[in-house]
């Protein structure tokens, strides 16, 4: 009763605490915040202070002096730096909860389906110490499927592949529950890493994470261009490893698609393994309806085609692929009574 009263006064929120981006959905208002999960910490006379969070902090990533650290507190979908993650959540809550109500909000946070109990507990505790009244967890593939608008409660199989920054979640969902799920720690970050490694190997040029991400977004492709083509080109700047001076080179889509072969293959393998473990009736449903891709990784050019060719199933990219998880978590918040089956708590 009392908590319901508090709920009226506070803005309950759903948080997609992603490795790359954090999205905050506020009840009744929709997605109000979409910022990179980066925190810049300044060391002021031996005391650590938060300098910037989000987009501003991302600008500092890889460009900081000695007393400033730009940290990504999440790695592989789970919290790597507990204190910094807590500061970041606190900052985001304060940003969207501006003076509206003195009551602390209820928060739903999504966690990778493959995360361990310790990792889930870490996420829940950091959300609680960031000022949440109550914290509930939802598994990412379920949130992604709800956000993509899949009929998850029907007695028919739906397969969703959520390719996030740190993890790729493959799940078969039916009757409101996850029948099979598989989480591989391959995502956007691994693709950036692959690009960095490729450029270092083949061009002896060291580039930063942000540059690699930009290349991936611009000309990244899961499959090489058609015969005889190299696709579009992009310039990339970095430090030459041979003589140590900054240098600019030009890379083609074909070379980038070659470099992305490893992470893409890992994703394809994960999907294949999930299909192998799908019960036959649900597999029959998936043959008809196919696979839905969500998450930022789904926007990688021609990834759907690679998966289509590898599995022989229809593969579609969900609309608002980047926001699917946040939308699904938000819907769980809005329709909490009906969707309480998918919410869990570590306590």
């Amino acid at each position: 009763m009392f908590s319901r009263l508090l709920g009226l006064m506070s803005a309950d929120m759903a948080i997609d605490l992603g490795t790359a981006n954090t999205l905050v959905y506020v009840k009744g208002r929709g997605i109000v915040l979409d910022e990179p999960s980066v925190v810049a910490i300044a060391d002021v006379r031996g005391k650590k202070q938060v300098l910037a969070v989000g987009e501003e902090a991302k600008q500092m990533l890889g460009r900081t002096p000695g007393n400033i650290q730009a940290i990504r507190p999440l790695r592989d979908g789970v919290i790597a730096d507990f204190e910094v993650a807590e500061e970041m959540i606190k900052h985001f809550i304060r940003k969207v909860h501006n003076r509206r109500g003195f009551a602390s909000p209820m928060i739903i946070v999504c966690v990778p389906s493959g995360s361990t109990a310790v990792e889930r507990r870490a996420i829940q505790e950091s959300a609680e110490s960031a000022g949440a009244r109550k914290v509930l967890l939802i598994e990412e593939p379920m949130a992604a499927a709800i956000g993509a608008g899949l009929p998850v409660t029907e007695p028919s199989g739906s397969m969703v592949v959520d390719i996030g920054g740190g993890t790729t979640e493959v799940a078969v969902i039916s009757l409101g529950g996850i029948v099979y799920s598989r989480s591989v720690r391959v995502g956007g970050d691994k693709m950036d890493e692959a690009i960095i490694n490729y450029i270092r190997r083949s061009h002896n040029l060291l580039i930063g994470e942000s540059s690699a991400e930009r290349i991936k977004m611009d000309i990244g492709s899961a499959a090489p261009p058609y015969e005889g083509e190299d696709g579009p080109y992009r310039e990339v700047k970095g430090r030459d490893l041979m003589n140590g001076v900054p240098r600019e080179i030009v890379v083609s889509q074909r070379s980038i698609s070659d470099s992305l072969l490893e992470p893409v293959t890992a994703i394809v393998e994960a999907v294949k393994v999930a299909l192998e473990n799908t019960p036959p009736e649900l597999a029959a449903d998936i043959v008809d309806k196919g696979i839905v891709l969500t998450g930022g990784g789904a926007l990688l050019y021609r990834l759907d085609q690679v998966l289509r060719d590898a599995t022989g199933l229809p593969v579609v990219v969900a609309e608002d692929a980047l926001q699917c998880v946040a939308l699904g978590t938000g819907r769980a918040l809005e329709e909490m009574k009906r969707l309480r089956n998918v919410l869990t708590s570590m306590y």
Binding site: L150, D288, K289, V292, V316, A318, E319
Partner: peptide, 13 residues
């Protein structure tokens, strides 16, 4: 068509 999300996805593809 099998469902709203799938229908839109098919049309897009």
């Amino acid at each position: 068509l099998p469902g709203n999300a799938y229908a839109v996805g098919f049309v897009r593809t």
